[in-house]
Amino acid sequence: MKKSASSKAEFFVKDRELVLPGQALAKGSLKPDKGVYVDEEGVVRSYMVGLVEISNERVGVIPLRGGYVPKAGDLVIARIEKMSQRIIFADINSYCKAIMIVPRPEPRRGGRRHSLLAKYEALAPGDVVLAKIMSYDGVSNPLLSIKGEGLGKLVGGSLIMIEPSKVPRALGKRQSMLQVLKQKAKCDIIIAQNGIVWINSNDPKVIGAIEKALRKIERESHLSGLTERIGQLLDSLLGRKS
């Protein structure tokens, strides 16, 4: 099986090149990654506007446009919409609503479960929560959970929406971009996969600066050296004090 991987792959594009829908990327024995499809002749083609990513016989395209597609394991910031006894509906800035299932009360089973139930019971429509997508099969509604440390209602702070396709860039490689944002702003920031950013600050100057930085990331997401430029931008906006 592994023999087929012994390279006979032919690339038509360079790594990090801007590609368009339908553009031929490569041919031969390769593993198609996200954002590509293989046509009848075995040519790997991009299916969206994005940047090519080539690594170890893999070709993929990182999208530059597009809405949020839920994925199990993603951290999202959701807004509670409707609540019933057992089910909570939440808006996750996607094409479908997410649901949360309130655990059944199990009295006298230690404090932990109780505290989780209390967490759910404290929610009200309109609340903004940090939650994790537990499962999504593409057909029924994605299932959310606020079980876990740090998850649950977000109190205070400000929210900024960015394009969901730009989230990987806003986080940076190994969260390098997020680190820069946090350091310069000197406050906690959460960038959720669905394109909603929570800034734990009430200082309009900080919020304004972060928003400017995020807009710059959105605009220049297809270019390299962005982390550095964002650092410089925030320094000039917030004043160099470190």
């Binding site: 368009l20 829908p21 969206m48 530059l64």
Partner: peptide, 11 residues
């Protein structure tokens, strides 16, 4: 459609 990020076989 391409601008909306919708997966397309081509333009």
């Amino acid at each position: 459609l391409a601008d909306a990020g919708i997966p397309l076989r081509g333009l």
